[in-house]
Design a protein around this nucleic acid. Structure first.
Lengths: 225, 225
DNA sequence: CCAAAAGTGTTCCGTCTACACCCATGG
DNA sequence: CCATGGGTGTAGACGGAACACTTTTGG
């Protein structure tokens, strides 16, 4: 309880973004090769320093906006990482944030400008510093949260088929799900709405498109954040 | 991904300790009145600044040791809190840690020296800055974790009765539990060992004392962190 | 002898799991 | 006409929830 600012030292604080996407039935992560020292050339998460005039959340949102051009992204704090020499250059404490975006919403030109790529979670290389640890923690959180929070929709377009949704669940949980049991479960959730639209792209027969109804969800007490 | 240290500003980083204890069948929290500005006189968690030569975990452990004289305490990160003016004096980003201790292990003289008190979670006053938020998040985490991690033992002496254990669960979950169902559940967990000892303090009849067997737990795959 | 806490089983119900076949259509 | 993905129901297993009485003994 002894806090006399003057006696203490300040440190750099950064945010690192763990950006998940879903494509080709796989969970993907947005990573790039570091273009500066230390760690030049190593695979790394995208991050940035926290400014004086912004909160941690604001810093994370700004960084995500810079990277993707997207606002109002689903985002959760993963945790603070503060090993002494986690950054070989200077003492930097970082707060990791996990974000979920729809790959299709992300302008590919912007992606290239930032020199980042979608890499399958299954084939994730060794990342800079403690970034693998952050990703592991984020995945762990996703798995825990997927059944108590409507995450999955953030990885899909507004309209999606049940098969697509199932693939998202499978990618996050890392295991196959029985189709009938899955659909039964989904039907019992009333904020997942059937629409009149039919998707004819992925199947010849055509699949009914569903939609996440935010208002219905707000009224639903079974799920809680 | 643009990180040129020099251009960026540093901030103070502190750790705040949410210390839970269990006494009189209630969850208690260790809080004290701030003895410095800003916020002098307000109830507050115990905290301290992170030094240059220590990690976040080390800072939290050191702070806990200073406060309690105890080492090897059960501790988990709750999260980072970084609103711009959460500290009215200076920009301070804090990382909250939650700790569980056995009230009996804590020297009461040391407690008084630090000017902190055990306050029932049910009667928690308004705390300094965003500390109530931290506590709420910590309680939330405890509730989630209690069924997937052997937390409760950290709040009890080495030997405890099933009734005591049940009271810990009830205090954390904030609801009553059926005695028979609880005992059935506990009996199916093999790292909770019956001992030959009998407690004659709290009941006339006497209650069997149990113990948490760490080695058994390590072998048990049903529970996972 | 009685108050106070310890200890003990069974039944029911809802949820999860396993499992296989027909449908519609574009090419 | 057939390959491809879409769509559907049922039976058994399992786990959680409800529920009440007997035992022991210190005072």
């Amino acid at each position: 309880m002894t806090r006399y600012y003057g006696e203490h030292s300040k440190v750099f604080v950064s945010v690192d973004c763990i950006v998940f996407g879903f494509d080709q039935d796989q969970l993907k992560l947005l990573i790039g090769k570091r273009q500066m020292d230390p760690g030049r050339g190593e695979w790394s998460l995208y991050g940035g320093f926290v400014r004086e005039d912004e909160s941690l959340e604001e810093a994370a949102n700004r960084t995500l906006y810079t990277l993707t051009g997207l606002r109002e992204i689903y985002m959760r704090q993963v945790g603070a990482f503060g090993a002494i020499d986690r950054d070989p250059g200077e003492r930097v404490i970082t707060v990791a944030y996990c974000a979920l975006i729809n790959v299709k919403d992300y302008d590919d030109e912007l992606r290239k400008e930032h020199g980042v790529e979608w890499v399958s979670l299954n084939q994730l290389p060794k990342l800079y510093s403690d970034h693998n640890e952050m990703v592991a923690k984020a995945v762990h959180q996703l798995r825990r949260r997927i059944n108590s929070e409507p995450l999955s929709f953030n990885l899909l377009p507004d309209l999606f088929t049940l098969t697509q949704l199932q693939h998202v669940y499978e990618a996050i949980l890392g295991e196959e799900i029985d189709k009938r049991n899955f659909r039964k479960r989904i039907k019992s959730i009333d904020f997942i709405e059937k629409t009149e639209h039919i998707d004819k792209v992925t199947s010849k027969r055509g699949a009914v498109l569903y939609r996440f109804n935010k208002k219905m969800f707000a009224l639903d007490s079974t799920f809680r954040l």
